[in-house]
Amino acid sequence: MPPIIETRGLSKRYGSHQALDRVDLSIPAGTVGLLGPNGAGKSTLIRCLLQLQNKDAGTASLLGRDIDQHGREVRMRIGYAPEQDCHIPGMVGCEYVTYCAQLSGLPFAVARQRAHEMLDFVGMGQERYRKVETYSTGMKQRIKIAQAIVHDPQLVFLDEPTNGLDPKGQAHILDLIERIWKESGISVVLSSHLLHDVDRICEQIVIVAQGKVLVHDRLEELKRRRKPVAEVSVHERGPELAAAFTHHGWPSEVLSNGHVRVAHGHETLNPMIAFLRDHRVAPLEIKASPNALQELFLQALQNQGAAA
């Protein structure tokens, strides 16, 4: 199976700002998290791939087909939920999704049926008969996802789909995105600056900063390569425990929340549990690799900063 995204030397410049700098990527099917700080080039990368913006240099293929030669045909098999608020004016929800399906090549009768199926899928009820401009942020995000998958694409780009949502709304949208890959097999590229979103859903990570790809690998692999860290929650004896860990040769620190963060260096937590038992410490909670993605992300950015 060809990679869903393949780029060679993809570059884009806005005036003096290099938005994408010779990006080389080869991403297999699955759920992909596109991470990076604001202005890193995530959205530009997606927009160049979808030909919403002209690239300055390089080549790109989606689903094994060159976008320059087969742009229209490629987009027929791709869905896109943009970050910005956008809709076709004057349409009610189901009409809007039907229209988007027709624009993607579905005959009207099929488009109407699938529009209702997809609105069910994203969990929209009677709201579908209201005009899109009257929707709340959460509903707008859902309908954006519905219009992106209504034509049964093989790949869908979701640009910051949880932006502006409350935690409940975020959880709902993340559930939905998870189901897109698990239930339908549609590859998902999730662009976000929220690490938690990506950590929860994605199998692969691409970290972008200053228009360059800093890291691209499977999340599990990245976590495995990372130095094993654990977070131990104890009652009152935090500083004492941290000192004991350090004395044992495991660098540790007391965090602001009173937990002790320790780099134990083992694949499992067993040696650390044995250590706690020996020192008669009863932990309230032990978290293996907490905030692993955040650390990976920060580390990638630090490396980039040092290289620059």
Partner: peptide, 21 residues
Amino acid sequence: AHDLASNAILIYSSKALSRFD
């Protein structure tokens, strides 16, 4: 003008259509 005001151009451009279409 309607489409420009509501950012609908982005939706059209992301579908299986070119600017000319």
